[in-house]
């Protein structure tokens, strides 16, 4: 434990911003900068990356010698684990499996993010959501989705 006070949140924030700035800065390197009269595609992003880097640096430097006023708190690991994959799964399968099964599994995956959700309740919820959404979006609004995709041999 160090004796000197420091704002851990701001250290992380500052470093992340500098990292993001470095990422954008690195990718600007391949772009034409141009002149201030005829700005190339890299001009404005280069200015912005520089600005973000400086802001991140200031935030980092200011975080030393100051107490963290609000600790990090809990992290929703279970939420991260199940919520984030849900849209990814939908994106990967909506064409292949089709709208109906893709949506069913997406809802099922998302519902696992809560510890309070019981398996049967999750199943009922997923079925209800799928049926209603299919009626509303596919039949009602006529969005051009295939209800069952080629992976199912239909």
């Amino acid at each position: 434990m160090s004796a000197k006070p420091k704002d851990t949140t701001d250290i992380v924030a500052g470093l992340s911003m500098m990292a993001a700035a470095a990422f954008f800065g690195w990718h600007t390197a391949g772009l034409e900068i141009g002149t201030s009269l005829r700005m190339g595609p890299g001009y404005f992003p280069m200015v912005l990356s520089g600005l973000l880097f400086v802001l991140g640096l200031i935030i980092l430097l200011r975080s030393f010698g100051r107490e963290d006023d609000e600790p990090f708190g809990k992290v929703a690991w279970r939420g991260l684990l199940f919520i984030l994959p849900a849209p990814i799964f939908f994106g990967l399968t909506v064409r292949g499996l089709g709208f109906v099964p893709a949506l069913f599994f997406t809802t099922l995956i998302a519902s696992q993010a809560s510890m309070r959700m019981r398996p049967l309740a999750a199943l009922i919820l997923a079925v209800a959501v799928t049926i209603l959404s299919t009626l509303i979006f596919s039949y009602g609004l006529g969005l051009p989705f295939r209800r069952f995709g080629p992976w199912l041999g239909m």
Binding site: I83, A86, P87, F90, G91, L103, T106, T107, L108, A110, S111, A113, S114, M117, A122, L125, A126, V129, T130, S133, F137, L143
Partner: peptide
């Protein structure tokens, strides 16, 4: 929230 996730995806 599962309902919200489904709506967001669609």
């Amino acid at each position: 929230f599962p309902i919200i996730m489904a709506m967001c995806s669609i």
